[in-house]
Amino acid sequence: MDALIQNIINALQWGSFYALIALGYTLVYGVLLLINFAHGDIFMVGAYIAYFAAVFLLGGHGEGLGLPPLLVFGLTVPISMILTAGVGVTLERIAYRPLRRKGAHRLYVVITALMCGLVLENGNLALFGASRKKFPELVDKAVYTFGNVSVTNLKIMVIVAAVLVFLFLHFIVTRTRIGMAMRAISWDRLAIPLMGVPVDTVIVFTFVLGSGMAGLAGILFAMSYPILDPYMGAIIGWKAFIAAVVGGIGDIRGAFVGGFLLGFIEIGVVAFFPSTLRDLFAFTILLVILWIKPTGIFGVARTTKI
């Protein structure tokens, strides 16, 4: 019983990361119908930005500002979120928007996104070297034990952050004007600009939201697993994308549920089987879900007209 609860908490934390990244995928997909394959690497950039910001603010070795860790944490979160959002918007401006203007085939934009991801990964590797970075400890670790179940404050923070982000995004998409514009664009991309909705502004806003959440996921991930390497974003990004699709891509609830589902499956497999079987089981289960319900859990099948 204790082991079960412990594993559920671990799965909630692990799923939170997937959910946070999947939210970014699903937001961009909902508006642009573009699989932004660079998103996993934007998450990685977020973690690195958080690392450099934290090291600079913490100081030590006679450099940096030498602020107390908690204040550094409070500053690093907004800094990394804003800068990561900047990276996402830059990609949109430089790579995706010109292609969209030219009316290129959708899949060429996807390939461009893949290439942007590779540039971010390997540019990072070329700039900062292959040695892994150790993220400094910003928040003192506190372990709460209930019976045999132990929870760290970081775990609670990650889970709470994921839930808050979900509620925030859900609020924005369903209750605000700009959210209404986002839904409208995904409903009909041809008619909406004629109604006076500034499409480009809405798209930039979408990228700000998605990449900002990736930045948040980056700093939380770096604090929970404090070793950074340039390829950490790729695998998590692909998996989060799969989670988003299983939930029903284009739907915020779908990304959230899909992320946690993938987290639960992975932790569940590791709890009962050798950990090398994790990918095999996780993806087989997801494949079966998609076989049974091809549009994902929250996806709605649209009729095709000729």
Partner: peptide, 28 residues
């Protein structure tokens, strides 16, 4: 076989999952 019912990005995901499944199966 999934491609009978599934198109586009959902099929893309199935192919990615198939890639992971094959690699993971061979590694095990």
């Amino acid at each position: 076989i999934p491609s009978f019912k599934t198109r586009g990005d959902y099929l893309a995901i199935i192919t990615i999952a198939a890639n992971y499944i094959v690699i993971s199966a061979v590694e095990n």
